[in-house]
Structure formats: C-alpha cells, structure tokens
Amino acid sequence: MHGPSAAKNAIVTGGFAVYSAEVEQVLMTYPAIQDCAVVGLPDHKWGERVTAVLQLHPGLTVSDSEVRNYVKSRLGSVKTPKQIEVWTGLPRSKVGKVLKTEVKEILLSSGAGDR
C-alpha cells in the first residue's frame, strides 16, 4: 500500500498509522458483519479515533465488546476501533463501493466527532 490512497486511508491515532483496509479485512471475517467502513474521527486525546461503521447480516446483532475483542485478538489494541456504530446500510457509489467520505461526513454531522 503506497501512494496517495494509502496515506488518505491511514488513521493516525496516538502517533500510530492504522490502515482502514486492514481493519476492514478483519471485520469482514466476523460472521455477523455483512459490510463495514473504517474511518478516523477527530479525537482530543488520540488525534484521530478508529471508528467502525458496521452493516450486519439481517436478523443478527453484535455487541461492541465482541467486535472489539475480535479485532484486538487479531490486530492488537492500537488498531481496534474505539467507536463502533451499526447502520442498516452504508452509502454506496453507483458501482456499489462504500463511500467512506460520506460515512465520515454523516458521523461528523451527527455529533460523533471530537470527544
């Protein structure tokens, strides 16, 4: 992962670079998760906070702690989402790609930003 897209998708939290794609790959292996987006939100303590927005398979539920433990056991605590949101759907482009910039804008406009 090199070039501008890699840097754009890096979340700098507590001085560490976390790549959203790496966290998303692990989340996608969790049985209840149908799709996800990982973004960085402003955080007064960490600089940016790793935030995961999950779309679950119909009829399934997860707890934040289950998801955090799952990611932490595979990637370590730095890359574990500090904030987890569950949405019924994620904003997508015409070709079905999740629009992370829109996900981030929605989170920021809903007051989920700096904490």
Rank of each mutant, 00 (worst) to 15 (best):
Ser5His: 14
Gly14Asn: 09
Ile11Pro: 08
Gly47Asn: 07
Lys8Ile: 11
Asp64Pro: 06
Ser65Glu: 14
Asn69Arg: 08
Ile106His: 04
Lys100Ser: 06
Pro4Cys: 13
Ile106Arg: 11
Phe16Pro: 00
Leu54Asn: 01
Gly76Ser: 06
Trp87Asp: 01
Arg115Met: 05
Leu108Gly: 08
Ala17Ser: 15
Pro42Asn: 12
Thr88Ala: 06
Glu66Phe: 02
Ile33Pro: 00
Leu54Ser: 01
Arg74Phe: 01
Pro31Tyr: 01
Glu22Met: 11
Val39Thr: 09
Thr29Val: 03
Ile106Glu: 02
Pro42Phe: 10
Ser63Met: 06
Val98Tyr: 12
Glu24Ser: 08
Leu27Cys: 04
Lys104Phe: 09
Val53Ser: 03
Phe16Gln: 11
Leu41Cys: 12
Val12Tyr: 09
His44Asp: 15
Val98Ile: 15
Lys94His: 09
Val39Ile: 15
Trp87Glu: 02
Ser109Cys: 06
Val71Asp: 03
Val26Arg: 01
Trp87Phe: 11
Leu60Thr: 15
Gly89Asp: 13
Val12Ala: 07
Ala7Asn: 11
Lys104Met: 11
Glu85Gly: 05
Pro31Met: 04
Gly113Asn: 12
Val38Gln: 03
Gly89Thr: 13
Glu24Asn: 07
Leu60Ala: 11
Gly89Ala: 13
Leu27Ile: 00
Val12Phe: 09
Ala52Gln: 07
Trp87Val: 01
Asp114Ser: 13
Val39Glu: 04
Asp64Ala: 12
Ala6Leu: 13
Ile11Ala: 11
Thr61Ser: 08
Asp64Cys: 03
Ser73Thr: 03
Ser109Arg: 14
Ile84Tyr: 04
Val50Lys: 03
Gly96Pro: 09
Val95Trp: 10
Arg68Val: 02
Tyr70Phe: 15
Ala37Ile: 00
Lys97Asn: 14
Lys82Gly: 15
Ala52Arg: 04
Ser63Ile: 01
Ser73Asn: 12
Ile33Gly: 00
